[in-house]
């Protein structure tokens, strides 16, 4: 079993980075030391009853970063934190992405804020792998335009055509699938549902010869450590807890038609 820490950490910086999304760095050596791409941290927000799960966006030295949309009470509170403020963080949690050492070409598909864990994955995978990162958003100001690791091949996709390719990820992805051994995705449920139609062909045959497709799920969580069963989803291997058995699953294991979030 992995080691989980609950610590009071310090905010290093917190800035609006893309439209409606904040980038927050915190000092947390315990989490930074052991964190793996795809894992998350449960962060306490003010006196709200439930912690908020935030995926680990990047790790640098003793610091970890979160990239989150400001959408509700918890994320609003987080967005107002300033340098030196204290954050109660519990993590790292969950099972992250499996970076297969024999794969050569990795295709990373990010829908909106789903870019968050994929940057960490790209950084860890780069030395041994070729990484193509497709980021799909509604408009250009939601695109991830921070400096990326040098060798990442970044493909911006906007629904309004204001930058990069026009359309949604599922429309443009087929041209990148051919060269990919492994597919990693993080985005909304609709994106995954569209992907099942593309990646898994009739009778489960793999149309594009992608060996593995790992996706990161987001559902409301209670405890974050596998105790409350609030985040369970149906899979072909039985009910699985997103927080403890995931949040990363094989695309083909999830019974998508039974999930409405």
């Amino acid at each position: 079993m992995q080691h989980i820490e609950k610590t009071l950490t310090t905010v290093i910086s917190n800035t609006e980075m893309m439209s409606g999304a904040h980038l927050m760095w915190i000092e947390d050596p315990d989490i930074a030391r052991v964190a793996h791409p795809g894992q998350f941290v449960m962060v306490r927000c003010d006196d709200l009853l439930l912690r908020r799960p935030l995926s680990i966006h990047r790790v640098a030295g003793n610091q970890i970063a979160f990239l989150f949309n400001v959408v509700g009470k918890g994320s609003h509170w987080l967005s107002r934190l300033r340098r030196g403020d204290t954050v109660d963080a519990l993590g790292p949690l969950g099972r992250g992405f499996d970076i297969n050492s024999t794969a050569r070409n990795l295709l990373l598909l990010a829908g909106g804020i789903g870019i968050a864990p994929l940057i960490f994955l790209a950084e860890r995978a780069l030395p041994q792998h070729r990484v193509v990162l497709v980021h799909g958003v509604r408009m250009s100001r939601q695109l991830y335009l921070q400096p990326l690791p040098e060798k990442v091949e970044f493909v911006p996709v906007t629904e309004d055509g204001s930058m990069g390719r026009a359309g949604v990820i599922s429309e443009v992805v087929s041209e990148f699938l051919d060269g990919a051994d492994h597919l990693y995705a993080c985005g909304p449920l609709e994106m995954y549902k569209a992907m099942t139609g593309m990646v898994v062909g009739e009778g489960g045959a793999n149309k594009f010869k992608v060996e593995h497709c790992q996706v990161s799920l987001e559902v409301r969580m209670g405890c974050g450590i596998g105790a409350c069963y609030g985040c369970s989803v149906p899979t072909r291997k039985g009910q699985k807890r997103v927080c403890a058995d995931g949040p990363v699953f094989d695309l083909r294991d999830i019974i998508w038609e039974e999930i409405k979030i």
């Binding site: 009853l49 439930l50 559902v219 409301r220 209670g222 069963y229 985040c231 369970s232 009910q239 979030i261």
Partner: peptide, 9 residues
């Protein structure tokens, strides 16, 4: 158990 979502604050 029941379908998602199962929790709301």
């Amino acid at each position: 158990g029941n379908p998602q979502p199962r929790i709301v604050e």
